[in-house]
Design a protein around this nucleic acid. Structure first.
Lengths: 271, 271
DNA sequence: CGCGAGCTTGAGGCGATTCAACTGTCGTGG
DNA sequence: CCACGACAGTTGAATCGCCTCAAGCTCGCG
């Protein structure tokens, strides 16, 4: 086994062979960033030549954020949002008794920082959950702000990203409001798979999932202990597999059924 | 006692003398709408003369929505958002087993419908919880879209409204994620007081609160039965008073302390 | 080797839910 | 005028989901 970093494993860390397809590691950091960025953008919207070139030309200036550190682009002096190139982050809300409630988690290719509209979620400082590397999105935002007519694809893509974020937030409300622990975890892991898939970071239902059980609890409003029990239940029921930072969805159909439907009990055990 | 409509009491219904200050009833519906709209807008941002005139000139065309009916401006054929003039609405998310999770509640002066950016929450159809009356916000949005330079105050005001909405959503996540029923209800009633205060619909800590206990449960992820028990606890502890659709915050300090701080037990009973 | 971070497991208790019944109020229609 | 149903609120009992406390475990690393 290679030098696996777990559980704070990261997208740019060396990964075991079985997961090496998740991210090509032979390339340089910035090259990877541009590559997956382009891939994600084109998934979201068609881009014209000028836009593709702009994305390709993004700065090599990678900022590294240690796990636990805060990422607040605006406070850092750079008045532009930043793109996550690798690693996971979250939006913690600190409570006066020391607990945290995560409002959202962010994966590679998500945008951190104000996008000019000072929206509350975007303005919330993010916390790095793993080592996180970011690059400035300044050229993209400048282009969209100054010559919107020439970059319609970029605008479409970033608009979609914002909408997806808000949708995730709404789903999160439903999860917290009226789903059981089993459903919350299942639907969360499913959402994360969907998002990792969108950036090409999945392989046959599996993806690197660096959240600790404690972090999952803070996201889903559950205690660490309970997350643990439910995770093993998901495993024993053949819905997911978990191994050293990698999650694998074993049965999309059953998991989707479980995740989307807050029917109390009977339907959880499919006979 | 006048002909009080309860529990589906509404802002435009006759109200008992003790609460008659909550809304002047001698005025026509549209006049009230313009009046409180202007008041709220000026609370949010200073307006120039042209803007004030525009707000004053808003259409008298009031649309009435029955309780339980859906309000979806876009589907109605009017491609503009609408302003609630009176009554309460919510954004329900329907689950496959018939339960509902409310994503948000809307009070008079809130905006329903797409604002041109097709954001998920705004696009979610709203459900009238009481009789709701709305007017078109078309003149305002046309003005902002076509001559943004001439209506800076309008833009500031509506931007603030959007930000407040998103903040409420984030608070909602925290409530659902890690607060007890006592805290959820307390903080919710406090938020509603704050919002009613912003439109001048409060009097000495009290305001008309037309949500049924069932609706509160759907909003806060609690069962009707539990809401009931907690409501009486709040009453018996002298934190709130409840009487026929009117809620009164009895002790802002203790309620705020309770609502903002998810400390499990001891602090809930202040000795 | 020893430490720390994360995961695992058991026991006990509280918070919240479900089921079920009952009260009070209002509007409707015989 | 009163019987009736609809609806909101109230209350009790039993149960479940999840939490807290408290250990113990595993693994990688200094």
């Amino acid at each position: 086994m290679p030098d696996m970093v777990y559980p704070l494993s990261t997208m740019h860390a060396n990964v075991p062979p079985s997961a090496s397809v998740l991210e090509p590691r032979a390339m340089g950091a910035a090259a990877i960033g541009r590559d997956i960025l382009l891939r994600r953008m084109r998934n979201l919207s068609s881009l014209n030549e000028r836009e593709i070139e702009l994305v390709r030309s993004l700065s090599d200036q990678v900022k590294v954020h240690d796990p636990g550190s805060m990422i607040c682009p605006r406070a850092d002096g750079s008045p532009y949002p930043r793109l996550i190139v690798s690693g996971w982050a979250c939006r913690p809300r600190l409570l006066s008794d020391g607990r945290r409630q995560m409002l959202a988690v962010h994966l590679p290719l998500d945008v951190l920082g104000d996008r000019g509209d000072r929206r509350p979620l975007a303005m919330t400082p993010a916390a790095a959950l793993t080592p996180v590397r970011t690059i400035s999105a300044a050229p993209l935002y400048d282009a969209m702000a100054n010559k919107p007519d020439q970059f319609p694809g970029l605008i479409r893509a970033f608009t979609k990203i914002e909408r997806m974020e808000e949708n995730q937030l709404l789903d999160h409300v439903v999860r917290l409001g009226c789903q059981t622990a089993l459903q919350r975890i299942a639907s969360c892991l499913l959402e994360l798979h969907r998002r990792m898939e969108a950036i090409g970071f999945t392989h046959d239902g599996s993806y690197q999932m660096p959240l600790t059980q404690e972090a999952l609890g803070e996201l889903l409003g559950l205690s660490l202990v309970h997350v643990n029990r439910i995770v093993r239940q998901l495993k024993s029921e053949g819905l997911f597999e978990f191994s050293s930072g990698i999650v694998r969805v074993m049965d999309f159909q059953r998991v989707s059924l479980l995740a989307d439907r807050p029917v109390p009990f009977d339907d959880a055990k499919y006979g």
